[in-house]
Simulated scan of single mutants.
Amino acid sequence: MTNTKNKNKIDFSIIRERALRNIREDLISNWSDRYSAKKISDTFHNELATHRRRAAVDDFVPILVEAAMLNRLRGGSL
């Protein structure tokens, strides 16, 4: 007999990490004509660290990091 509780359990941390990786790669792809990939990546990791420290709910971290990065990139304050 299998335990359906464990079978249906989803590890959202994996999904969050994939989302963060995709967001970072998309930002580099879309903005590397104006900023170096290293600068975008470094700033992304700084924003991520800030949001992870402050997060009450980890599920929203990717959305918050993406919004903060787009704000910085569009505002020229990378």
Score class of each variant (00 low, 15 high):
residue 16 R to V: 14
residue 16 R to N: 13
residue 16 R to E: 14
residue 17 E to A: 12
residue 17 E to R: 10
residue 19 A to M: 12
residue 19 A to Y: 05
residue 20 L to T: 06
residue 20 L to D: 02
residue 20 L to G: 02
residue 20 L to F: 07
residue 21 R to W: 02
residue 21 R to M: 02
residue 21 R to Q: 07
residue 21 R to F: 11
residue 22 N to S: 07
residue 22 N to W: 01
residue 22 N to Y: 05
residue 23 I to H: 01
residue 23 I to G: 01
residue 25 E to Y: 02
residue 25 E to G: 00
residue 26 D to C: 02
residue 26 D to K: 12
residue 26 D to L: 05
residue 27 L to C: 05
residue 27 L to A: 04
residue 27 L to E: 03
residue 27 L to V: 08
residue 28 I to W: 00
residue 28 I to M: 03
residue 28 I to A: 00
residue 29 S to V: 01
residue 30 N to G: 03
residue 30 N to T: 09
residue 30 N to H: 04
residue 30 N to Q: 11
residue 30 N to E: 12
residue 31 W to P: 01
residue 31 W to F: 15
residue 32 S to G: 01
residue 32 S to A: 09
residue 32 S to Q: 12
residue 32 S to E: 10
residue 33 D to S: 11
residue 34 R to F: 12
residue 34 R to K: 12
residue 34 R to I: 07
residue 34 R to W: 09
residue 35 Y to N: 04
residue 35 Y to S: 01
residue 35 Y to H: 08
residue 36 S to F: 09
residue 36 S to H: 05
residue 36 S to P: 01
residue 36 S to Y: 03
residue 36 S to V: 08
residue 38 K to S: 11
residue 38 K to P: 00
residue 38 K to Y: 10
residue 38 K to W: 06
residue 39 K to E: 14
residue 40 I to W: 03
residue 41 S to P: 00
residue 42 D to W: 03
residue 42 D to M: 03
residue 43 T to L: 01
residue 43 T to C: 04
residue 43 T to K: 05
residue 44 F to Q: 00
residue 45 H to R: 04
residue 46 N to Y: 04
residue 46 N to K: 08
residue 47 E to S: 06
residue 47 E to L: 07
residue 47 E to V: 10
residue 48 L to D: 02
residue 49 A to D: 10
residue 49 A to S: 10
residue 49 A to N: 08
residue 49 A to G: 08
residue 50 T to W: 00
residue 51 H to D: 08
residue 51 H to S: 01
residue 51 H to C: 02
residue 51 H to M: 06
residue 52 R to G: 00
residue 52 R to F: 02
residue 52 R to D: 08
residue 53 R to N: 12
residue 54 R to I: 11
residue 54 R to K: 12
residue 55 A to H: 06
residue 55 A to M: 05
residue 56 A to F: 09
residue 56 A to Y: 04
residue 56 A to W: 02
residue 56 A to I: 12
residue 57 V to P: 00
residue 57 V to L: 05
residue 57 V to Q: 05
residue 58 D to Y: 08
residue 58 D to Q: 11
residue 58 D to H: 10
residue 59 D to G: 06
residue 60 F to N: 10
residue 61 V to E: 07
residue 61 V to C: 04
residue 61 V to W: 04
residue 62 P to N: 09
residue 62 P to Y: 09
residue 63 I to N: 08
residue 63 I to E: 11
residue 63 I to A: 12
residue 63 I to W: 11
residue 66 E to I: 07
residue 66 E to H: 14
residue 66 E to C: 12
residue 67 A to G: 13
residue 69 M to K: 12
residue 70 L to D: 11
residue 70 L to V: 15
residue 70 L to E: 14
residue 71 N to V: 13
residue 71 N to R: 15
residue 71 N to T: 15
residue 73 L to M: 14
residue 74 R to G: 15
residue 74 R to D: 15
residue 74 R to N: 15
residue 74 R to Y: 15
residue 75 G to N: 09
residue 75 G to Q: 06
residue 75 G to F: 10
